[in-house]
Nucleic acid binder design. Structure first.
Lengths: 199, 199
DNA sequence: ATGGAGACATACGGAACGTATGTCAATGTC
DNA sequence: GACATTGACATACGTTCCGTATGTCTCCAT
């Protein structure tokens, strides 16, 4: 009994989805290096054959997982931006939201720690870590409005994200994350104000 | 024929030194994961037995390598600080020097990419990544002098270093590192000025 | 001189990755 | 409607590599 082409495509997508989900789970909990492909494929009810067929190798699966997480992050950041009143507020709110997202173990472990170590610098990734892009866009608008010093928006966005990442790592390993988080955001706001034309 | 105790201690230190040097070389060129302990110990004219005896495991060797690099970085940063005229200059010069050091492939690969992925957040490292400490000290002095906003110096130092790291990664993967480097430092100075009480 | 500890080398087991090969269903072709 | 082909997986295999367990030899203490 044959299935419709559409149904078949769905099954393939489902297989890919299950592998990505299993990989995401394994990478998040054990870390990339310690995650066994035999284990995670079995978790998805498949074998390594399926994984190598769809993703080429272990790094390929990591790329796919990161692309998925990155898309989710971009969507969440988008809503934060849309709700802000001014362009500056959007920039700040987005950055703070980014710090908070970087506290989530899954994002921290996979995207922020293992990702760069295994795949190299994020700016070279296929899934062009879209969060930095949106920060850069916010900055571009602010520079056009004359509120922010005429710096290179892409570079500045990277710096801002780097600072936020560092803050997140610090917070995550702190005794009292909530208390440290407040201090980190305070420092971050001070730093960010340096981009303004007048303080 | 017996050797003096001093001579013996020297030989042990030499063995450790050769292993650290070989590990440093291998980690820098191949990355931590791809570096084979059989290969790098053979490169040092030894076997894995020596390595496990002195460093416990592969992570132990990485820690030792990072500690060595970190010490070198701290020494280099110290001279930069000592040559600065004001406390603010010291802070800025040190940060710029840090960005430039983060461009060196060895430092970038071992300390900035593999280190956090394998050993976790640097603030938890045994060798307490001393660069951040000295940045924090600079900030502490500046806050005491009233030049810098009363933020938490440790957190702010982390943010600043994170921004610098991100800049370095960006620069390193750029087409024209020298040109991008200038832009990055410009943006960095803008950001850092946000810490000043009056801009 | 003799027992013990430290500094290494060697041998072994096991896990994990990537590849090569096989199977089965679906699709296109004559 | 038979048949070759392609894609989606599963299975089997070889290799690499890590960590440990064991052995040896030198040096020091008593």
């Amino acid at each position: 009994m044959s299935k419709s082409p559409q149904r078949r495509a769905d099954m393939i997508a489902e297989t890919r989805g299950k592998l990505i989900a299993a990989g995401r789970q394994a990478f998040a909990t054990k870390g990339y290096a310690a995650a066994s492909m035999d284990d995670l494929t079995a978790e998805a009810g498949l074998t390594r054959g399926a994984l190598y067929h769809h993703f080429g190798d272990k790094k390929g699966l990591l790329e796919a997982v990161i692309a998925q997480i990155d898309a989710e992050m971009a969507r969440r950041l988008r809503t934060v931006i849309d709700e802000a009143d001014t362009a500056w507020d959007a920039f700040i709110d987005e950055s703070v939201a980014w710090i908070e997202m970087a506290l989530e173990p899954e994002i921290q472990r996979i995207v922020l720690l293992d990702g760069p170590a295994v795949l190299g610098d994020p700016s070279r990734w296929a899934s062009q870590i879209s969060c930095v892009d949106s920060t850069a866009n916010s900055l571009r608008r602010l520079i056009a409005e004359g509120k922010v010093k005429p710096v290179d928006p892409d570079v500045a966005a990277r710096l801002v994200n780097g600072a936020a990442l560092s803050a997140a790592l610090w917070i995550a390993s702190a005794e009292d994350p909530r208390a440290v988080s407040a201090k980190a955001i305070e420092s971050f706001l001070a730093l960010a104000s340096g981009l303004l034309k007048q303080a």
